[in-house]
Design a protein around this nucleic acid. Structure first.
Lengths: 102, 102
DNA sequence: CGCTCATATGCCTGTCAAGTAATACACGCT
DNA sequence: AGCGTGTATTACTTGACAGGCATATGAGCG
């Protein structure tokens, strides 16, 4: 968990990996194939994701199966909380306005 | 809106600026003072934030007053949507499990 | 034990972004 | 018009990081 979650998500390739792992766990080679990236590149991104807690690994024969862990994403979601209140409030204000128009 | 929202948020200084603007709109100098950053640094970050739509500016005399705009944050929130479903589902599963235990 | 497949790691290079210092620009005031 | 304040912009230096290639590690199998 050494690296900041936002910094991890800043890299588009890593978001693509997460999107894929959201559907199903996957081996490194499958990810590289599916995303059109080289195997070393995928491995490096997976290392970053793993160290930040976004994924966990399991060894199956000679493959490493990576699986999504949602906890860092929940942290991002929590960070968004106070801001979400802002637009929720604005929506409330809009609703009140619309009601007063009727 | 040229730059990716996640890349913008990856910079801790910019998140601090957003946190401050969440409480109240502010001039460049006030931000620099409050956050202990140099004025050019703040201006530079504000430019990035502005080009990505996170803030809007208004000119008041010789000051530029910056104000938060939540739309890019809503985009991030939307991106999180499918993942939020994941842990919501897991919670549901947990609840069902607990119910079956009673 | 050597071979092979799957993955990880090291090294190199190019790129890009952050911070600083100096400077330019815009506005208001006298 | 000239001056001072507030802000933007520039040039420069430095550091981090991504991608490519080559190579190391490790597990399974003959």
């Amino acid at each position: 968990m050494s690296v900041d979650a936002f910094a991890v998500l800043a890299e588009p390739s890593r978001r693509r990996i997460l999107e894929r792992l959201r559907r199903a766990e996957s081996s490194v080679g499958d990810l590289a194939d599916a995303l059109g990236m080289s195997q070393p590149t995928v491995s490096k991104h997976l290392r970053v994701l793993r160290e930040a807690g976004f994924v966990t690994v399991r060894t199956a024969a000679q493959q490493r199966i990576y699986r999504l862990d949602v906890r860092p994403l929940r942290a991002v979601d929590d960070w968004l909380g106070p801001y979400r209140r802002l637009w929720a409030d604005h929506l409330d204000a809009l609703e009140r306005h619309l009601e007063s128009q009727e």
